[in-house]
Design a protein around this nucleic acid. Sequence first.
DNA 1: CGAGTGACGGACCGATCGGTCCGATCCTAG
DNA 2: CTAGGATCGGACCGATCGGTCCGTCACTCG
Lengths: 186, 186
Amino acid sequence: MARTATPGTRARIVSTVAPLFYSQGVRAVGMAQIVAAAGCGKNLLYSHFPGKNELVAAYLSLVSAERDRSAERALAAAGEGREAVVALVAEIADRVREPGFRGCAMRNYLTEFPAEDDVPGRVAREYLASSRARVDELVRVAGGSPGLADRVWLVIEGLYAVAGRPDAAQQAEVAVALVKELVATL
Amino acid sequence: MARTATPGTRARIVSTVAPLFYSQGVRAVGMAQIVAAAGCGKNLLYSHFPGKNELVAAYLSLVSAERDRSAERALAAAGEGREAVVALVAEIADRVREPGFRGCAMRNYLTEFPAEDDVPGRVAREYLASSRARVDELVRVAGGSPGLADRVWLVIEGLYAVAGRPDAAQQAEVAVALVKELVATL
DNA sequence: CGAGTGACGGACCGATCGGTCCGATCCTAG
DNA sequence: CTAGGATCGGACCGATCGGTCCGTCACTCG
């Protein structure tokens, strides 16, 4: 017939827009800026996403998948038991040290849109729940109590929260050291 | 002359608008909603504040002052040394348990406006710095190392981060218990 | 080659944003 | 009582938001 549809357009748009949403916040990035960055017309954008909400949800899903993969990679390279718990926190700490790290995209979104029960919010909350469940499972396998999982989770939350501050890199090391101490009490 | 200006109008506006900003986020609250909630005309509002930024800064300053007072009250009722550190965290945990608690207003603002170096952002960053300095000082007086202050700060950050989640109340207790353990190692 | 589809760029829409201004009203000082 | 400032409610402004639509070009396949 005619010109065939470019494959992977949707993924390309999402990966182009993800750093914008992440670095500036979802509300601060307008659709005009998005199409300019993606180098496409609004037509194409709205043919792949019904609206901004769905694009944001796709962005959060992409980040969620990347983070899951990164965590699983770190866990595969680490040992079993308590070492796995430390490895998970260390992997987060590594990302906190990277320049441009600005905290967890899911938490940031929920801070921007606290009360909304919209599509991106559900993605974000689902990710947080599964992330928390992963910590629980790792600690349980390591022989730790649910209380220990609570403590580790608290450190992880703090680790994400200090992101972007001047002392984030230092706090990243502190978090890893603290978790090491916590799991050492097993 | 004429009708005398109502005293405390500025403070009334700020205290009226504070819960709106806090619960919905700064960007989500428009000036129309503000004047409706404050029960005043836009004239009065803009005669007290040059613009929304200054109103937001006043909101953050109000919250900052309230939090400082609350922390000092808790510290005055607590003992010296390591007990003071625990008391500070316990005071935060008390607020986390309150319904409607949605995290630290300063951190939330900085998440909403990450790159901006505007008036409210300076208020928020200044508060965070002074809050961190308070923790450092308390730990130092208690005889703790700077590393301990780092750990306590991390727990406080985590405590704020879990606010608003379903398990916030439980995590609040966990945070207090964890800090108790940390300072017990002195 | 020519027809037809994919994609681009941008004009355009209604709604809403922060902010300004104006007339009407109320209250108090003289 | 009267005059004048404080305050209110809302019309109004330009800018920008998310979203729609159209004209044009590019490419590909019959």
